[in-house]
């Protein structure tokens, strides 16, 4: 059961979410999300024993297709929205020392 509505560890969660938050944002979000979590606590009163979870409203089975190659975008099209391109590749900061 979820009871710790005042206990969102905002630094930990923001790190997981890979978002740099300002101190003001951290303070504001902690308060607002605390309110939301408190509201959500009412789910604790529902008896769900024996109830299956619903991931999609209608039961889905795996959808298969033939493993056949289809044409994709030309390189120029695929790179058109890239923020930095070098020699037909997306340029990124150095990731290995």
């Amino acid at each position: 059961m979820a009871n710790d509505s005042d206990g969102i560890d905002i630094d930990y969660v923001a790190n997981l979410a890979r978002i740099a938050l300002t101190d003001q944002e951290k303070e504001r979000f902690s308060g607002q999300l605390g309110d939301v979590l408190k509201y959500i606590e009412k789910l604790n009163t529902v008896d769900v024993s024996g109830v299956e979870p619903t991931a999609h409203a209608f039961p889905l089975e795996n959808v298969w297709r033939e493993d056949a190659a289809e044409p994709g975008f030309p390189v120029e099209t695929a790179l058109k929205n890239a923020p930095a391109v070098r020699r037909n590749m997306i340029a990124v900061p150095k990731v290995v020392e």
């Binding site: 979820a2 789910l43 529902v46 769900v48 109830v51 299956e52 979870p53 619903t54 991931a55």
Partner: peptide
């Protein structure tokens, strides 16, 4: 998981 179960209900 709890929310998904209440969704079923």
């Amino acid at each position: 998981l709890k929310a998904q179960k209440v969704r079923t209900l």
